[in-house]
Design a protein around this nucleic acid. Structure first.
Length: 580
RNA sequence: GCGCCCGUAGCUCAGCUGGAUAGAGCACCAGACUUCGAAUCUGGGUGUCGGGAGUUCGAAUCUCUCCGGGCGUGCCA
């Protein structure tokens, strides 16, 4: 239920009628419809609905915008609910709607409840959202949180518009870093048994979490791993460590209210020869060759040209061709990444989304190139980058060094501020904007803290509804006469609530979950205004002692607000408490 | 050097993907609690949208160029 789309269709019908273009092909109709907009104007004096159709489509029919507008106006006036139609500026058509129209929307919301906001515009489309995908070499830290939340909430939003969503985590459990991990664990294991404090060599994982891991390893295997062939031990430690760390990661995600649908293993792709097959497939397409990369523009001192196996990424928009097999015969990580994306494409039969940290921005082009090559068409992969998060405490930035133990884990933050605050705050900034996460602010009980502000609005509504029940009002019943809701603030709330499906839709189309957060804050703000107006004007109080019908109208409006706030917080997996 | 992102009010940020007079919050000042929760609300003013050029009915938004900041940049992992 998106009234703007409904009106768009009606307005377009009229356009076709007055310009005698009824015989357009479906394709034409689609492209014409893409061109103009029907929206709630920013400026209230521009009416309830505004369209630029005359400005955009007048040329096509050989008219001036104003001429077309005049032609359309008389036809628009015949439609229901349209009370004031005016032509403004260079040829905008602004339309006002009867109050009753907005009141009906409230009743629709109450009927649909949590289904309000859902749409079917992408019904039965498949989509795979890959996010987090942190290497299983340590616990999750703040760097991962933002992507985790954005990926999870985006998935929820996509579900609301009809997508079949798979939330996926790619485990980099093969390659050199895992060897290093195992060797690092071995050092800790040795340390534990020999009680000699270990030196952690350069390049190894120094984190103290490995001490705990080594203890678990000892609990299971005793000191037996010291006495057998070290290669064998390391192989066993590898498996053990990955499982241990991955379980830890899963636990952390669970604490953040995130559950993945699928975990994919890189190791498996190497073992079942998917990587080889992928390279063969690209080779068949003539996209693989043996060659030498050009010398890099900087730091070229120790550059040596070497022959290696390359993928023709340049042909698909990348800056260079990219190495698939190194000169020493080993596969690059890029090779298994390509295989992984091929695997996802085959499984998904739809589009792919990757949520990456901004530090991976250099890989966007090559990955997109590879997916375009495999899929034989563009646009199957969309990569959303999220910028870094600055932690702030006592007005000072918390600097994390990569040295041992000196990073803040996700777990620690959850324990300190709670999952709700983390999730909400991560969505209060556009994903490509750097975000400050202020420990003090996010737990503050004030307007400064959007999490609190929105939850508080919900709690206040619940408190009124409880009171209503105590006073003997039937809060379950809808379908009351809402004509009492005729104040500007009432109508503003109706309009904002009606806008909800559109918010979901644009968030889904542009993959921008932050829009939902801003919307919820705005909605809460107008609600708080209405509440306070009741202090000043008796007729704006929710309970009208002499007039039950008016009271019920108010209660219905509040219930509608509650429906939308709950849906929004539900999308975020943030709780909506009855009282605070 | 190259690539990506960012630059909007004193500060933190939106701006419906090209729309009309560019909007919020914070901070600052002044007000509102015997009432449905004052953890809130109401007023009060702020802009060379980093600079310049271009595209058109119309640009914060698209293109080019320059300036400033962040991140990333070899067969890494």
């Amino acid at each position: 239920m998106n009234i703007y789309n409904d009106f768009k269709n009606q307005i377009f019908e009229i356009f076709l009628k007055v310009t005698k273009n009824n015989n357009k092909s479906l394709d034409d109709i689609h492209t014409l419809k893409e061109k103009f907009t029907v929206e709630l104007p920013r400026e209230e004096s521009h009416g309830d609905i505004s369209t630029n159709i005359c400005l955009v489509l007048s040329k096509i029919v050989g008219l001036k915008p104003i001429e077309l507008a005049i032609l359309m106006k008389s036809n628009l006036e015949k439609l229901d609910c349209f009370v004031g139609i005016s032509i403004e500026g260079p040829g905008f058509i602004n339309i006002n709607l009867e109050n009753s129209f907005w009141h009906e929307q409230i009743l629709k919301i109450l009927k649909l409840k949590s289904k309000f906001g859902r749409s079917e515009i992408f019904l039965n489309n498949n989509i795979n959202v890959e996010f987090v995908s942190a290497n299983p070499t340590g616990p999750l830290h703040v760097g991962h949180v933002r992507g985790a939340v954005i990926g999870d909430v985006l998935s929820n939003i996509l579900k609301m518009v009809g997508y079949n969503v798979t939330k996926e985590y790619y485990i980099n459990d093969a390659g050199n870093q895992i060897d290093v991990l195992a060797a690092s664990v071995f050092i800790r294991y040795e340390e534990l048994i020999t009680k000699n404090k270990a030196e952690i060599p350069e390049g190894y994982y120094p984190g103290e979490y490995l001490i705990q891991l080594a203890k678990s390893l000892y609990d299971v295997h005793g000191d037996s791993l010291l006495n057998v062939d070290k290669l064998k031990s390391l192989e066993l430690i590898k498996k053990f460590s990955i499982e241990y760390l991955l379980n830890q990661i899963k636990d952390d995600l669970k604490k953040l209210n995130i559950e993945m649908d699928k975990y994919s293993s890189e190791k498996k792709l190497v073992e079942d020869l998917s990587v080889e097959k992928t390279i063969q497939e690209l080779d068949k397409k003539g996209l693989i060759y043996i060659g030498v990369l050009p010398s890099p523009k900087s730091n070229a001192e120790d550059w040596e040209p070497k022959e290696q196996t390359l993928f023709k990424a340049k042909k698909f928009g990348d800056d260079e061709d990219r190495t698939i097999i190194k000169s020493d015969g080993a596969l690059t990580y890029f090779a298994s990444d390509v295989a992984y994306h091929r695997d996802k494409l085959i499984r998904t039969k739809g589009k792919l989304i990757n949520i990456w940290g901004a530090d991976h921005s250099g890989y966007v082009k090559r990955m997109t190139a590879a997916v375009n090559a495999i899929a034989d068409k563009d646009g199957q992969l969309e990569i959303k980058l999220c910028q870094m998060v600055n932690l702030i405490k006592n007005n000072k930035p918390l600097k994390m060094s990569k040295r041992a133990g000196n990073f803040i884990t996700l777990n620690e933050i959850i324990d300190e501020v709670g999952a709700d605050a983390i999730r909400f705050i991560m969505l209060t900034r556009k994903n490509d904007q750097v975000l400050d996460f202020d420990f003090d602010k996010v737990t503050e009980k004030s307007k400064d803290n959007p999490v609190f502000y929105v939850k508080y609005a919900h709690a206040r509504i619940c408190s009124v509804l409880n009171k209503a029940e105590q006073l003997g009002y039937d809060t379950e019943k809808n379908n009351y006469d809402l004509s009492y809701l005729n104040n500007d603030v009432h109508l503003k709330l109706c309009k904002i609530l009606t806008y909800w499906p559109k918010v979901i839709e644009t968030s889904a189309i542009h993959k921008e979950p932050h829009r939902v957060a801003f919307y919820l804050i705005e909605l809460s703000s107008v609600f708080h205004s209405l509440w306070s107006l009741g202090r000043e004007y008796d007729e704006l109080r929710f309970f009208q002692k002499e007039n039950d019908a008016s009271t019920y109208a108010n209660l219905n409006l509040l219930k509608a607000i509650k429906v939308v706030i709950c849906s929004g917080l539900d999308l975020f997996s943030v709780s909506a408490p009855q009282e605070m």
